[in-house]
Design a protein around this nucleic acid. Structure first.
Length: 765
DNA sequence: CTTATTGCCATTTTT
DNA sequence: TGGCAATAAG
């Protein structure tokens, strides 16, 4: 068995899989077989070390990863994995909280609901309204972001410290928001983590229970953990101390969600005796691809250097292409796709087109549509985001937990039944005044004992109350008969005549049909889980946001080119990878210019994209790009200049021969006039750029690389006589002068590129 | 209560 | 450019 288990592994993988007890940190480069290591580790623990499956807890970020790990472990162990705990951080926490519901803060019960971001926003809107805050200035979303950040750091409302007016608003909103959640018996995703950590930390009994059980804790994608998640695994592993963390700092691309790759370094500090194992053998890409990727990532600091290597020596060069416009970029991509099919025998499914922002999918999609090359876009509205699904799930939520006012408000007049805003408000006020809760209120209204609203709408309200109460009787029959959820679902859709309502919320017959199919799919899902308790079913739904029960029509999908964002591409691989829009401002994204950490993350994003490719890489940028309604000259990504010329081919440099003087004129002509045409500077960069000559020339002088030691630096505040005050976002040498990118406060001017010598700017200290 | 209009905004998003 | 959400009018 041991021989079997370890025989197919390379030495580093074997070390990791067969490591003894204690903390282990596996730094796994892209394509180095990290899932293999994790699954074999599980098999090794059970098969060789005799650990009972229930003593093992494996934590992932996505359901997909959890499912894959489970099935691979299962096949390695011939199905002997009963009790093995594999799940996402959130699902594991949700389960613990449900089991230990007695230890939750008062107001919460086992039947709590999980609010997704739409629910959160709806709730926060009520908070903002109550606080009399201008939602334009402080949007619910931004406030929620602030709160989420705090929760990820395990900061309570009381501990939250404000540092400016915005965070002061967050500080005020946070406790109110939490109170509202509790009033609704609801937790948001961040609460699941934070409350579990709090519970394990503060409750000796609960802590011991889970610590004793967790003999071995394995963590996937460790670089993506936030503070709460790291704390969670430290707590779970706190008794046995067997933490097996697998990750790669270079693939950390979720900082904006609180992920902190420095947890990898922290792990080494927290467990100084930990074994650290590097997986550097790559089983995916050619050496050329790896070399190109490495030229990008090696520029980052604060990382563990890795020397990825592969048996796939050589490979074809990275193709760099300049298109005139985004439209021609799309055409070029499709053209290359067809050539790959014709000449090299690839299938559509072997090819992926990646981009930094979703907006780029549109023009690419147009090109695919025009030529009839089959494609699919990853992302978009997930199943559970669909209106009809949300409506029906909201009904189930209210049946389960009538105090969930966000869901209640969603459905109280859906389908339309004559209950308007005024009635709703009156109803809520009335319930609040009685102080007895929603369930009792609905019961009283249903049987006519109490009438909060008179007249026509009062009648409608009473009917609604009866509906909910009746459905509750089906869901909870009283005796301990388990309810078939399908029965409940069918009764629900019949009673509210939801299908008849569909045309009202649809614009085309096709849309009606689509919604109908979605409802069928939901019914299928219900039926496959019909024996679950309603609250467990709802938790399941909330925690499986990605699941797409509808398989879209047939073989087209099965073999088509994949279009997806770089973020969505993480963890995937394709024989051929295109990255479109490799331009400064897109990749790296302009929002990251002013912050070195964010810029480093953009670099990792590029790295993730490059390392998805098995054989071929195509990178493209457009000379001018229309985005958000305006056409702007663009600059090739600074990252392109980091790839050594001998690894690339192509890079059409049609206009390379423009003289320095001409280029300078181009660059400055927009500076002095027409404020109505902002951001139209900087063409000179394009003319100067030459990715092939780059490596052989003096880099600092010839390339758009941010150069330290110039007069303006990112973050500086400046004053311009015409444009007012702004913040320096970027600065680089341009000929003998300095080209400064400034984001002006006045939105009318926005981001501008100016030549320092002529711009007559003042630095504000 | 539905429908039309306007105005604003636009990275990424595993749960 | 276009999609959505808040607002005004039918």
């Amino acid at each position: 068995m041991a021989a079997d288990l370890l025989s197919g592994l390379n030495p580093a993988q074997r070390d990791a899989v067969s490591a003894g007890t204690g903390a282990v940190l596996v730094l796994a480069g892209p394509g180095s077989g990290k899932t293999r290591v994790l699954t074999h580790r599980i098999a090794y623990l059970i098969g060789e070390m005799g650990i009972p499956p229930r003593g093992i807890m494996a934590v992932t970020f996505t359901n997909k990863a959890a499912a894959e790990m489970r099935s691979r472990a299962e096949s390695l162990l011939d199905g002997h994995i009963d009790g093995l705990q594999i799940g996402t951080f959130h699902s594991i926490c949700a389960r613990i909280l449900r089991i230990e519901a007695d230890h939750l803060p008062s107001g919460y019960g086992r039947d709590y609901v999980i609010y997704d971001s739409d629910d959160q926003t709806a709730l926060m809107k009520t908070v903002v309204a109550e606080m009399r805050i201008d939602p334009k200035k402080f949007s619910p979303g931004r406030i929620l972001n602030g709160i989420s950040g705090a929760k990820n750091e395990l900061i309570t409302p009381a501990e939250y410290a404000s540092s400016d007016y915005f965070t002061e608003i967050v500080k005020r909103a946070y406790p109110i928001y939490q109170e509202r959640l509790r009033n609704n018996n609801a937790l948001d995703f961040d609460d699941l983590l934070m409350m579990t950590v709090t519970m394990l930390r503060d409750d000796e009994i609960v802590r011991q229970k889970y610590q004793r059980r967790s003999e071995h804790v394995l963590i996937d994608e460790f670089q993506d953990t936030n503070t709460a998640q790291y704390k969670l695994i430290r707590l779970l592993g706190g008794y046995h101390g067997n933490l097996f963390a697998v990750g790669d700092e270079d693939q950390s691309i979720y900082a904006f969600r609180g992920a902190d790759y420095r947890n990898v370094q922290q792990f080494r500090k927290d467990y100084p005796e930990a074994r650290v194992i590097l997986l550097e053998q790559n089983y995916r890409s050619t050496q050329i691809v790896l070399d190109a990727a490495r030229s990008i990532i090696d520029k980052n600091k604060n990382r563990t250097p890795k020397q990825l290597f592969t048996d796939k020596e050589g490979g074809s060069l990275v193709t760099v292409h300049e298109a005139y416009s985004e439209g021609e970029e799309g055409e070029w991509v499709v053209e290359r796709v067809r050539a790959l099919m014709r000449r090299q025998g690839y299938s559509y499914r072997d090819i992926a087109v990646m981009y930094r922002i979703n907006a780029l999918s549109r023009t690419l999609e147009d090109a695919f549509k025009a030529t009839g090359v089959p494609y699919r876009i990853v992302g978009g509205v997930s199943f559970y985001q669909r209106r009809e699904i949300r409506d029906l799930v909201a009904y189930l939520r209210v049946i389960n937990n009538p105090i969930d006012t966000i869901s209640l408000n969603r459905i109280i007049n859906t389908p339309t039944r004559g209950i308007g805003d005024k009635t709703v408000t009156t109803f809520h006020d009335w319930v609040a005044a009685r102080g007895r809760g929603y369930l009792e209120a609905l019961e009283a209204i249903a049987n006519g004992t109490l009438i909060p609203v008179t007249g026509r709408s009062g009648k409608a309200l009473a009917e609604f109350a009866s509906l909910i109460i009746d459905l509750r009787k089906i869901a909870f029959p009283g005796d301990d008969t388990p309810t078939d959820l399908t029965v409940l679902f069918d009764e629900l859709t019949a009673r509210i005549r939801y299908v008849a309502y569909l045309p009202e919320i649809s614009t085309t017959p096709e849309q009606v049909q689509e919604r109908l199919e979605n409802i069928q799919a939901l019914r299928g899902l219900v039926s496959s889980k019909k024996d679950l308790r309603l609250d467990d079913f709802l938790a399941d739904v909330s925690l499986n946001t990605e699941a797409e029960p509808v398989e879209e029509s047939g073989e087209q999908i099965a073999n088509s080119v994949t279009l997806l964002t770089l973020h969505a591409a993480k963890g995937l691989e394709y024989p051929v990878v295109f990255i479109a829009g490799v331009e400064d401002g897109l990749l790296p994204h302009s929002r990251s210019f002013a912050d070195a950490d964010e810029m480093a993350e953009e670099r990792r994003l590029m790295y993730v994209g490059l390392t998805r490719a098995r054989d071929h890489l195509f990178l493209s940028y457009a000379f001018r790009r229309s985005l958000y309604g305006e056409s702007i000259p663009s600059i090739p990504s600074r990252f392109l200049a980091d790839i050594p010329a001998h690894l690339t081919e192509g890079a059409s440099l049609k206009v390379r021969h423009m003289t320095e003087r001409e280029a300078y004129k181009e660059a400055t002509r927009w500076d002095s006039d027409t404020p109505s045409r902002p951001a139209q500077t900087g063409r000179a960069k394009i003319f100067e750029f030459d990715s092939r000559a780059a490596a052989s020339k003096d880099r600092a002088a010839s390339l758009p690389t941010p150069t330290p030691g110039l007069k303006y630096k990112p973050g500086m505040h400046v004053y311009h006589p015409k444009f007012g005050t702004g913040i320096v976002v970027d600065s680089r040498r341009s000929g003998s002068d300095e080209e400064v990118s400034v984001r002006f406060e006045d939105k009318q001017f926005g981001l501008k590129r100016l030549m320092a010598e002529f711009a007559n700017m003042r630095i504000i200290p």
